[in-house]
């Protein structure tokens, strides 16, 4: 297998509350962070988790994947969760988790 460049994902975790921030800091273990970019250590997937506030998604977590394990799409397609209160997206290209894409 040829030498491959590691996946790069946008990185951001909110400080909405101390509890949530403390938990979400675990995402720093998925790869080294510099500024708003993370270089993934063990995954090719980037993820985004959003809360929907007044109809607008607000990113809680942007990072290299820790828990999804699979990301077949090149762009970060929105999937709604918990009665449309949250959005999840995952994707497999560099910095693909900066923008949510919609529809099929």
């Amino acid at each position: 297998k040829p030498l491959q460049q590691k996946r790069r994902c946008f990185f951001q975790i909110t400080e909405s509350t101390k509890h949530n921030y403390r938990q979400n800091k675990k995402y720093t273990a998925a790869g080294s962070v510099s500024g708003s970019v993370q270089v993934c250590e063990t995954t090719d997937c980037c993820v985004g988790y959003y809360r929907i506030i007044n109809g607008t998604p607000k990113a809680d977590i942007l990072a290299c994947d820790r828990i999804e394990k699979s990301c077949p799409d090149e762009t970060c397609k929105a999937q709604t969760r918990i009665n449309n209160q949250f959005l999840t997206c995952m994707c497999n290209t560099d910095l693909c988790n900066g923008n949510i894409t919609w529809g099929k």
Binding site: N20, Q23, N24, R51, R66, T88
Partner: peptide, 14 residues
Amino acid sequence: LEVVDWNADGTFIS
């Protein structure tokens, strides 16, 4: 199982 859970303040690893 490690998951992304939610509360009134948003989402968090749990």
